[in-house]
């Protein structure tokens, strides 16, 4: 299969069996899942980034990324998502995976707001968000330092009409 074809997606909660595959993802200098400096993070710190909400994302059975969906407000149907695919994943994979994650996360619960945010230096993440039809809500400036310069993060969201 070439990387432009859409793979068969699957996922599972992170477990120790995924440890080596996940550490390999963090050898990529732009694997920005909960850190702006992935390849310089030590093993212990990477494992602390991976919590019980974190799932590994598999394309045709191979670990290619991570995601997490967290509730932001118990009674507001407001969730946030963090999504990262490895550098070799083409933009079509991001769109495809995101579409499947949306479908899965709205399958048995109401979602009114789904928020994502990407650092200003995260060109792949921003390109995905801007091509996914998400609403760009603004930039919170100067929240982090990356390669000697200060950057903000850009907030995106998709909002559905509440059912009730």
């Amino acid at each position: 299969m070439t990387t432009t074809e859409t793979p068969r997606w699957s996922s599972r909660p992170y477990s120790d069996a995924d440890r080596d595959a996940v550490l390999a993802l963090y050898t990529e200098p732009d694997f920005y899942f909960r850190t702006g400096d992935p390849d310089t993070r030590p093993e212990w710190e990477i494992l602390e980034l991976i919590d019980e909400d974190t799932h590994v994302l598999l394309a045709d059975g191979e670990v290619v990324g991570l995601y997490a969906v967290e509730s932001e407000a118990n009674n507001a149907c407001h969730y946030s998502m963090q999504l990262r695919l490895r550098a070799s994943a083409p933009p079509a994979w991001w769109q495809s995976a995101f579409g499947e994650l949306l479908r899965a996360n709205t399958w048995r619960r109401e979602v009114v707001r789904l928020a994502l945010r990407f650092d200003e230096f995260d060109y792949r993440g921003l390109a995905f968000a801007r091509s996914a039809g998400l609403r760009e809500e603004g930039t919170l400036g100067a929240v982090t330092v990356h390669e000697g310069r200060r950057h903000g993060y850009v907030s995106f969201a998709r909002i559905w009409e509440p059912i009730s």
Binding site: L23, T27, P38, T40, P42, E43, I46
Partner: peptide, 9 residues
């Protein structure tokens, strides 16, 4: 050269 993160190995 780029420094990388520590691993148990």
């Amino acid at each position: 050269m780029r420094l990388r993160g520590y691993r148990g190995s």
